[in-house]
Design a protein around this nucleic acid. Structure first.
Lengths: 333, 333
DNA sequence: ACGTGAGGCTGGAACGTTCCAGAGTCTGCG
DNA sequence: CGCAGACTCTGGAACGTTCCAGCCTCACGT
């Protein structure tokens, strides 16, 4: 049933065309050094035999896999968005992506190990939790780009959003709508949480709203958001900025269950502009990370390194506010 | 800065451990033939050198990649659950997973092509939309296992849930609670939708509730659920079974926004028991697909085929009801 | 005492490429 | 005429594995 036809090799093609292996190799790689006539003969022979070069052997000899490894959290909606964008960013570069997922049973170390076996030439890590020291050690073996997390110090390239800036925009927007009692549900120890927290605090200061500053411990999951929202119910602010969209979803949910109207009673701003936020029935006002730019940069940095660059880059990409329907002017001050 | 340390090889490890390459090879593959003591020495040496076997070279020599390709939809919460389970299912088998994602910009054909280049020995496709004919064609090249979709006819192995059975259980549960007006929000043309629809219809019949049968066009996203729920608002049933959890989330959302209490006013049952359903603040009663069993079977089928089996299997795994907090007795009949 | 067999280990030949050094042939030019 | 250089082409050595045949050593049974 299955045509387990024996794969033909360079040698087979060479024999059929009456030339040497080396010559066939040249022709297959489209390199100069063969006459037009032989070239055609070789190509014909290859075609007749249904020859396809063996990637593994090629890699083994040449040492180049043209593969970029990507480590991502499979449960993470925003990572899904990033991976999607990474695929398109890599499309025209001549490099391909190799995916390795982090799951509850499979940590980053394991995910990374898998990619090393594939001989990836560089690694792109999405919001890695790996301690900086380990990252640095990894970076001695091959180029590493950290995406969507601001790591300090390690000799790795970093691409992330101007986290604080995002919260400035969020607070500005709310203040402009007339809000004064604006809380922040933070991301705990999650990557970027500290910066966003600081952004919130600074912005409140700038608007002379220090005394309204109110930070509730959140996290990065829906759960965390729900818990934080419940903590807020006793004395709700008129607006709340949330660490990320996923967490904001939990907040919205709890508010709805307790009869609080969004945005009439409470305005909510998320962060990421993940697929979640764009859903019509959620339609969340949020701070959009510029995934297209970030992923394009990440891929470019990785390739630069592969091709010999030794400059360490840290790219901070500005986010922007996307106003949807979860924010509006406060009804009662 | 970066030592661009040359990748260490079997030979390096061998030198450091004071044994031969062959011995190291044995140890790395976990084959018998080395004493416990040397084994440890070799493992230590490998660790110190940060050695990772080169998959390409391995494949080149042995002709076996020991790789199972997995094609999945990266936007799909339930696929994430499946991939997670697949990793654990594959863990002890000696095979590894190669992931290839389907994104809005990257269709199944492209995802599959990538895996073929990696010389995967078999393919596991998650809820593929590819037409049966193409699947059959693909199956002539290498073993193919279709997971979470009941494909007819093609010479591929299939592992899926007893879809209709799930809806029987859902309806039985609701009837037992005292519901009579039970609607179904279906999945349109999605894989499995037809079977679930039929399961609902049959179960309603069996309980002599034919005249309450009410099917609303849904789909597999939150959007679809939200739209369907809005259609239901004019004359809400006391309970509704929904195509999947994702869709059910949309339903819950709309109900909450319109002040309908769940489960007091309306009971809701989902399908999949995806991570979504298990969230504390959602806590959705749902039909759990047995992902552990399904993935274990899928991996086993793939490996059987790789190892020469020519029997075509179709495994139908029974789902089971998980009662959480979105179902309860109807308050007013 | 001696074969015997098993367990632990080694050396070298593959696998299908690419890369390098060189071997012919031909052209043009001093 | 001879020789440099360009153009074609060839042979063989890598690349990092796995696989195979075989070599010790030791304990065991007779």
């Amino acid at each position: 049933m299955r045509s387990t036809g024996p794969r033909s090799t360079l040698a087979d093609v060479a024999a059929r065309a009456g030339v040497s292996k080396s010559l066939v190799s040249l022709v297959m790689r489209n390199e100069p050094g063969a006459s037009a006539e032989t070239r055609r003969r070789v190509l014909d022979a290859a075609d007749e035999l249904g020859y396809h070069p063996d990637r593994g052997a090629r890699l083994l000899r040449s040492g180049r896999s043209r593969l970029l490894g990507v480590v991502f959290g499979i449960q993470h909606a925003f990572h899904a968005d990033l991976v999607t964008a990474l695929y398109t960013a890599a499309r025209e570069t001549g490099y391909e992506l190799a995916l390795s997922a982090v799951t509850p049973d499979r940590d980053e170390t394991e995910a990374t190990a898998g990619l090393l076996q594939d001989r990836c030439e560089a690694l792109i890590l999405l919001g890695p939790q790996t301690p900086t020291a380990s990252l640095a050690r990894l970076a001695t073996r091959l180029p590493v780009v950290v995406l969507a997390r601001g790591v300090r110090g390690a000799a790795v390239d970093v691409v992330h959003t101007a986290d604080a800036d995002g919260l400035h925009q969020a607070v500005d927007h709310l203040v402009q709508l007339g809000h004064r009692s604006i809380a922040h549900i933070d991301g705990g120890h999650a990557p970027g949480a500290a910066q966003r927290r600081r952004g919130y605090r600074d912005a409140m200061c700038r608007h002379a709203l220090d005394r309204h500053t109110r930070i509730i411990r959140g996290g990065l999951t829906e759960e965390d958001g729900a818990a934080a929202a419940r903590a807020l119910l006793a004395d709700p602010p008129t607006a709340v900025t949330v660490f990320n969209d996923r967490c904001a979803t939990g907040v919205l949910d709890v508010l709805a269950h307790h009869g609080l109207k969004v945005p009439d009673d409470v305005s909510v701003v998320g962060y990421d502009d993940s697929r979640l936020a764009r859903l019509a029935h959620v339609n969340l006002t949020t701070i959009a990370q510029d995934t297209a730019t970030m992923t394009r940069l990440a891929v470019a940095r990785a390739i630069d390194r592969v091709e010999g660059s030794t400059i360490t880059h840290r790219d901070v990409v500005p986010p922007h506010l996307v106003v949807r329907s979860t924010t509006g002017p406060p009804t009662s001050p």
